[in-house]
Amino acid sequence: MISYSFDFSFLLTAWPAFLRGAWLTIVLAGTSIALGFVLGLVCAILRSGKSKLLSGLVGIYVEVIRNTPFLVQVFIVYFGLPSLGLRLSAETSAVIALVINTGAYSSEIIRAGIDSIAKGQLEAAECLGLNKLQVYWHIILIPAVERVYPALSSQFVLLMLSSSITSQISAQELTAEANMIQSETFRSFEVYLIVAAVYLALSVLFRVVLWGIGQFAFVRRRKLRT
C-alpha cells in the first residue's frame, strides 16, 4: 500500500488563478455560445431553405464538423491557418473553433425544430395575411427555437466543457491556468480535483443561466412551468 498525503496548501496562493481561469472560461464559452447560436440559426435557415446549393453546403459543413474531433479542428484553425497566411491569437482561434463547432450542432438541433412545425401553422398564418417573412419569423423560427431550447442548452453546456481543450493551444482559460499551477506546485492530482470541482460549478451555473434566459425569452415556458 502506497501512502499519499493530499496537500491542498497551494490553494492559499493559487486560488486567484483558479478564479481568473474560471472567469476566462465563462468569457470564452459565453462569447462562443452567443456567436455559435447565431451561426447555427443562420445555417438552420439555409439548410431548410429553398436553395439546393446553400442547403447542400451547410449539410457538408455540419457533417464534417460532427464527424471530426474538436481537438483536430482547433489545431487546424490555430496551426493550420497560419500556413495559409492567416495568423490568429490563441484566444481568437479558440473562439473561432468553438463557434464553428457549436454552429454545426446548433444548426442540426434548430433544423429539427423547424421541421417539426406543422404545415397547417403556415397556412393559418398565411390566411391571416402574414407575409412570407412574418410567417417565417413568428410562426416558424421563434416556436422552433422555443421547442428545441432544452437541447440547445445541453449543447451549450457541452461547449463550455469542451472549451477546456483549447488549453492545448494555450488559450487562456481554466484548464490552461490549472496546467500552469500544476507545473509550479507539482500537486497535479489535487490541482485537477479542484479544477473538476470548478467545472462542475460552472456547468451548474451555465445550466441555471441558460434556464433563466429561456424563462425570460419564452413566456410560455414560464407560464406553463415546462
Binding site: I165, T175, A196, S203
Partner: peptide, 16 residues
C-alpha cells in the same frame, strides 16, 4: 459529475 466535468480533466485525474 462526469457529465459536468470535461473529459480532459477526467483524463488528467486518471493519469495523475
Amino acid at each position: 459529475i462526469i457529465q459536468g466535468t470535461p473529459l480532459l480533466v477526467v483524463l488528467f485525474l486518471a493519469y495523475f
